[in-house]
Simulated scan of single mutants.
Amino acid sequence: MIDLEETFNESSIDDKSSSANEIGIEIENQNNNSNSCNRPNRRKRVYWSVEIIFNNYNEAVKSIEKKWIHQKTHSTKNGIKEYYKCSINSKCPARMHLQCIDENQNVTMLRNQEDHDHGFISSSKRLRKEIKDKIIQLIDIKVTAPLNIFHTLRKEGFKILPDHKQISNFLSRHRKLKNGPSTINYKQFKDWYNIRSKKSDQKISEFSQNRLIAQKNSIA
């Protein structure tokens, strides 16, 4: 008699249960990873410390003039906070805010824990006068490569330096001022050609006269 009932041994059951457990663990890990990826990045916490207390708002604004640039204003239940960034370089990590309390005329300046860091690259498109004067001095001694000029400026202690493009543009403008424009119009070309032709004709005439004189002297 043939037994049609399926038989299972314990090892096969253990294998299936263990594989199911592994699959469950893998799915759980994938869910955790996806949740961590979808989790928004936490903002870096900023710690503020009191820098100085001004007698009034006008005194505070006058003190920070040309040093800080206003970014935003935030209202609070006690007053307002005005946030500022460095005016020299927008990438400088230094930040500051003024805290104005409604019940008091005093204005408190608070700074974050970052020091000013202006790096070596200037955020302004215009070169400072001392930079221009130094570049002209380097041109006079035949230092005209923008990269060499950049490293020379940095070596001599200039902190806010122009980039490669700014130096190249200044060199181009300086050459135009010194040597004139690199292109000429038709009238300028015609005048140049006429002057050059006259000089050439004069040289030919002088050469012919000298040749005739030499021939006469040889015959005599």
Rank of each mutant, 00 (worst) to 15 (best):
S200I: 08
A60L: 03
I184R: 06
S75P: 00
V46Y: 03
D102K: 10
V61P: 02
R175G: 03
G157Q: 04
E114C: 13
I136G: 05
E5N: 14
T144Q: 07
N38R: 13
G180R: 02
I27Q: 12
P146I: 02
C100W: 00
K72C: 07
E22V: 06
N29F: 06
D15Y: 07
M96E: 04
C92K: 03
S63W: 09
N33D: 13
E156G: 01
W68N: 04
E6M: 10
E156M: 03
I25Y: 06
P181I: 05
K66L: 06
K155A: 14
K176V: 15
R154H: 09
I160K: 09
V50I: 15
A220L: 14
T7L: 10
Q113I: 09
A20V: 07
R173N: 13
I204A: 12
N56K: 05
N112K: 04
D115Q: 09
I64T: 05
L177S: 11
Q30G: 06
E103M: 07
I184Q: 08
M1V: 10
K125L: 11
I2E: 15
V46E: 09
L153S: 00
R43P: 03
E206T: 11
Y84M: 04
C92G: 03
Y57Q: 09
D3P: 01
P146H: 03
Q105L: 09
E51W: 10
E22C: 06
S18Q: 13
Y57D: 13
E103F: 10
S36L: 15
K155F: 06
N29Q: 14
R173V: 03
N185G: 05
I167P: 00
H151I: 13
R111V: 11
D163F: 04
Q99V: 05
I204C: 05
T183H: 08
N29A: 12
T152D: 09
C92T: 04
Y186F: 13
K62G: 12
V143C: 10
S17C: 08
N21L: 12
N33E: 15
L138I: 05
T73F: 01
K62C: 05
N104E: 08
K159A: 13
N9G: 10
D140Y: 06
R128E: 15
Q209S: 14
S63V: 01
I136L: 11
H174Y: 15
